[in-house]
Computed example of a mutant assay.
Amino acid sequence: MNEKHFNFLKELVEAPSPSGFEQPAQRVFRRAVENIADELRTDVMGNVIARLKGQGESPLRVMLAGHCDEIGFMVKHVDDQGFIYFAAIGGVDAHLVPGQRVRIHGRRGTVNGLVGKKPIHQIEPKDRESVIKIKSQFIDIGCRNRDEAQELVSVGDAITFAVGLERLQNDRVTSRAFDDKMGVFVVARVLEELRSRKELAVDFYGVSTVQEEVGLRGGATSVYGVNPDVGIAIEVGFATDFPDVDKKEHGDIRVGSGPVIGRGPNINPALFDLLVETAREEQIPYQVLGHPRATGTDANVMQLSRGGVATGLVNVPLRYMHTPVELLSLEDLENTVKLLAASVLRMKSREEFIPQ
């Protein structure tokens, strides 16, 4: 990955964007694609939709989507001493929160804080292994009372973990919010790759959706608005190549072994075959994961929009999902971009996606 693309990924994942508060990340996405897209708009939900116009009359409409919202928190109450109580936005593991540094994103700017925790010396032995419910945890921003704190924060302000993107060994990187701003990164890169072609046979829509973590909301409204023939969701997927993961239940999925192509009732079989064939012929490493039910991604709502959409799901393997230390491979990102761009260029007609 070149420096330009790495810096874009870093800016995107570090922009605060808990569900319902995605505008900072969406501004980064818009800037990245505004000189690439033929059309660029934001809908009433906050989804950002970039279009590359296809050639000919009534070309195949293809939509690629990643969601830009991340898990986080929201200010619920400020007590007399200036301590801040909060609630989770999305699926946050209460085990992870105590002792973390956080940032509160208020109208007057960002406020640094930390989630307080009683020292282990003061915790009764019988209570040391219990999980403190999030509603009982609190944030300390250093204020002496409620009035001081309310000068800086308000009920409803969004909160994120105070960590960003860092390089590890080999091509591994770690950050909060790869789920799923990494998918938005892929969407932007595929737009860039397709733009380099003089003519595009399909009408292509690259979409950064919102509020996936709280119910696939932006995915549902954006796919209805775009009305594609083919839709592919780009998501993180559970890597299983670290200790204590049951591969018999979750599959054998490895960081660095390529994008993961989903297969199952949520997935159009002809589109699955096209993705696999493209990977093989382009010599792109890939993995396959079976989804016997709904996938829990924007692919769910894509498939069921209007009269139905030929839907695919491509995951990038991710360790430690929904933690402040998510980990992935930059090479997997690059191969995902290659796979999707090459697959779109092979698409021709609506009929080829009707199951036979």
Rank of each mutant, 00 (worst) to 15 (best):
D171L: 01
T174M: 14
S175V: 02
R176N: 02
A177K: 00
A177Q: 04
A177Y: 04
F178K: 01
F178M: 03
F178W: 06
D179V: 12
D180S: 11
D180L: 10
K181D: 14
M182L: 15
G183P: 00
G183E: 03
F185N: 06
V187N: 05
R189N: 09
V190E: 10
V190K: 08
L191W: 04
E192G: 01
L194G: 02
L194M: 01
K198A: 13
K198L: 12
E199C: 02
E199S: 15
E199D: 12
A201C: 07
V202T: 13
V202G: 05
D203Y: 01
D203E: 15
D203A: 05
F204L: 04
G206D: 06
G206R: 08
S208N: 02
T209P: 05
V210L: 08
E212A: 11
E213C: 02
L216S: 00
L216E: 04
R217K: 13
R217T: 04
G219D: 02
A220I: 07
A220N: 06
G225V: 09
V226L: 08
P228R: 00
D229A: 04
D229E: 11
G231L: 11
I232S: 02
E235I: 00
G237N: 08
F238Q: 14
T240D: 09
T240C: 13
T240Q: 08
D241F: 04
F242K: 10
P243Q: 13
K247W: 11
K248H: 12
E249N: 07
E249M: 14
E249W: 13
I253G: 06
I253H: 06
G256K: 10
G256Q: 09
G256H: 03
G256V: 07
S257E: 15
P259Q: 07
V260E: 07
G262H: 09
P265N: 03
N266D: 12
I267T: 13
P269I: 08
L271V: 08
F272Q: 10
D273I: 05
